[in-house]
Structures are given as C-alpha cells and as structure tokens.
C-alpha cells in the first residue's frame, strides 16, 4: 500500500451526516471482481443530481473529503474505501467515523482524520467560499492545516506507523519471512500437497 506522510489538496465539502456505506457504494457494485473501477459508483445516487457537490467543475481533482459526522456506517463492505480511493481521495476528515469503516480505511491506506466538528465547520466554510483553497493533512505532525486553521488530531501509534511506512497486513507478516521459511523447512514430509511433486 502507498505510504502516507503528508498530503495537500483541494477539498470536497460534504455537508451530510450518517453517510452509510450503501450511499458511498451501492450494493449492485459489489458484483465486480476487481479492487478498482469503483469511482463511477461513488455516491452513485447523489451524483445523478448535477448540483451535487462532487459534480461541480470546480471540485474536479479534489483529493480531500470533508464529511459530516458518522461517516461510513452500515454494511462492512471494504468496497466503500476502494471507491473513495479510486475516485482520487487520499484522506477523509470527519468528527466521527463508523468503526468498521475506519478500520478498513486505515488498512487500505486511506487516512481518516477525526477532528472536532467546529474544525470541520471551518473547513466547510473555507472551501465553500473558495474552491481553490487547499487543505494539508500532515501525518508526521498529526495536524490539519488550511488558511486560518491549524488543528491537531490523534491516531493510534500502530496505525500511524503502518501508514507512514505504507505497510499493509501482508507486508507486516512478510517482515517475519525468516520465521515462515524456518517453519516451512521443519514441516513433516507427510503433510498433503495439492500439486504432485
């Protein structure tokens, strides 16, 4: 997975609370057999409305989603995270995330930043007034910065370490490759194999 140290980009202010994963990526998209190509399904129902914030020309290329409270509730589908990433979001800022969604996002390298609603409000006002305004999310300093805004955020040390180093579960396990190789070398000969030697 891609490492996350610091990201600066334009934002999409999403003034909605309780956005569930079915709104992020509707169920019929789950039939796909890849991890990419979900960008067109992101907020599919809302995107039918040309006035929806994501459809506005000035939001194209934005990479920071500033969302309302309780983002990512509902079904545990990991596809919600993939859809956000496929669309181009690097980070989502909200005052509260659903637990499973947050876990999935950090596993996949999408930084979910939990910050006070007053800060979210200021970021909304700022980016609504000026769509070119940029927001910086700095994981090294654990800080969100924008014009007139400097706010610290928390993230548990293990999740932060993994993001900073771009380590997914598999790469962490593969750091113990010598242990795996040693175990393999000691397996009895009678253990079954699917391929004939």
């Amino acid at each position: 997975m891609e490492a996350f140290t610091k990201h600066t980009g334009r934002a999409v202010p999403l003034r909605r609370s309780n956005v569930d994963t079915d709104q992020i990526i509707p169920a019929h998209w789950l039939k796909k057999v890849t991890r990419d190509g979900f960008e067109d399904g992101l907020f599919e129902a809302w995107r039918k409305d040309p006035e929806f914030v994501l459809n506005k020309p000035e939001r194209q290329g934005a990479s920071v989603l500033v969302a309302g409270p309780d983002f990512g509730t509902g079904s545990s589908r990991e596809h919600a995270v993939w859809a956000l990433q496929n669309f181009g979001f690097k980070t989502v800022i909200s005052s509260r995330f659903a637990d499973i969604f947050r876990g999935n996002s950090l596993k996949n390298g999408l930084l979910t930043v939990v910050i006070d609603q007053t800060v979210v409000d200021r970021l909304w006002e700022l980016t609504e007034a000026d769509p070119t305004a940029e927001i910086t999310v700095d994981l090294e300093d654990r800080q969100v910065r924008a014009e007139g805004v400097t706010a610290d955020f928390d993230l548990d040390e293990n999740a932060r370490w993994r993001l900073l180093n771009g380590l997914d579960d598999i790469s962490i396990t593969l750091r113990n490759e010598p242990d795996i190789a040693a175990y393999e070398a000691s397996r009895p000969a009678f253990k079954p194999r699917t391929l004939q030697a």
Binding site: I170, R193, T194, L195
Partner: peptide, 22 residues
C-alpha cells in the same frame, strides 16, 4: 477470491505456496 488475486497483482506478489492451494 477475485479481489484477493487482484490485490496480489497490484502489489506484485506471487502465491507463496501453490502446492498448498487448490
């Protein structure tokens, strides 16, 4: 299995033990 294989492909990883997989 499809997204699992897709994940391997994206990360450039092989299947470690095809002889234990079916």
């Amino acid at each position: 299995s499809p997204q699992a294989f897709d994940g391997l492909r994206k990360a450039g990883r092989p299947v470690r033990r095809t002889d234990l997989t079916i």
